[in-house]
């Protein structure tokens, strides 16, 4: 690479002036107690349903079916049986599904994020004929229901000898994620001041250098944000995995294991609620872990002035 001598344009004055972003923490803008109250009410409303599920997952089967979870407070009955049953090998044994979920999810997040950032860069910062048209076409592909792709794609995988392997799931998830990923990342990339890019070009940087040296550092929060969403969608997906790889414990993700917990005809809510909580742990951890990446804005706004 010949670009090592390119001065990073981050220190250029005009840029810094327009995008200098709060480094210091300002005071809260809405300080009225009503606003705080409202926020608390909203938070409670949003959490209450899940809280109900959490409590239910700790109640005995018969109690779940005959009384509401709030009766727990007047008549507390706690049991870990539901979790024990959901985790035990007899009830399906979720551990191998857990491994599969990880193996499925990690590449299915990395691949589309990388491909989409390349494509989004091309749509946002490279001039070529038909760019906008192509971008709109790609973004409109979001509307294609995954279900219409199942049979054609599975036929292709069968011909390629891939059916039943993880490869099909990785490829499919990556494909399905691209339109939205490109749309989101493109819109965030567009937010980066043109002056930054122009300055780098003036200094003789090629697109590859600009992409890595200018865009990527600024995009980290946006990539983390999309990464989280993609992680959730893949983690919680049932259909794609089931269709392309099948429901055997060899390849099937946690969602398959949990869906089957309810039994052939069953509505085993007690097992399902425990299962739902087992599967929520990982995505929530990922959210909390990655949240710090974009706590300062979708673009690494802290461009030092």
């Amino acid at each position: 690479m010949t670009s090592s001598s390119i001065p990073l344009p981050l220190t250029k004055q005009p840029v810094a002036a327009t995008v200098s972003v709060a480094a210091g923490r300002a005071k809260k803008r809405l300080t009225s107690p009503w606003a705080s109250l409202f926020a608390v009410v909203l938070a409670i409303l949003w959490t209450l349903p899940t809280f109900g599920l959490a409590l239910s997952s700790l109640r005995p089967e018969r109690a779940i079916k005959t009384s509401g979870w709030w009766t727990f407070f007047s008549n507390p009955q706690v049991t870990l049986d539901n979790y024990r049953a959901a985790l035990s090998s007899d009830g399906g044994g979720l551990s191998s599904y857990f491994v599969n979920s990880f193996v499925i999810t990690i590449p299915a997040v990395i691949i589309p994020v990388c491909l989409a950032s390349l494509a989004a860069y091309a749509f946002a910062w490279i001039d070529f004929k038909g760019r906008n048209l192509l971008f709109v076409a790609v973004f409109a592909l979001q509307i294609i229901p995954i279900q219409v792709t199942l049979i054609p794609l599975l036929s292709l995988y069968v011909k390629a000898g891939l059916a039943g392997s993880f490869w099909t799931i990785w490829l499919s998830h990556s494909t399905f994620a691209l339109p939205l990923a490109i749309f989101l990342l493109h819109n965030f990339m567009k937010e980066i001041p043109r002056e930054l890019i122009e300055a780098a070009r003036m200094d003789g940087a090629g697109h590859v250098q600009i992409f890595f040296r200018v865009l990527m550092p600024l995009m980290t929060p946006a990539l983390a944000a999309f990464g989280i969403f993609q992680f959730l969608w893949v983690w919680n997906d049932l259909l794609v995995a089931l269709t392309f790889a099948g429901g055997t414990p060899e390849v099937a993700p946690l969602t398959v294991g949990i869906a089957n917990l309810s039994g052939t005809r069953g509505t085993a809510w007690h097992l399902l609620s425990a299962g739902a909580f087992i599967s929520i742990v990982i995505p929530l951890t990922v959210f909390l872990a990655l949240q710090r990446f974009f706590v300062r804005g979708l673009l690494a706004g802290g461009l030092k002035g």
Partner: peptide
């Protein structure tokens, strides 16, 4: 597989 009825058709049609 709980979604056998839909899936088996998809698999049969797709040659799998």
């Amino acid at each position: 597989d709980k979604s056998f009825e839909a899936q088996v058709l998809v698999r049969a049609k797709a040659g799998n």
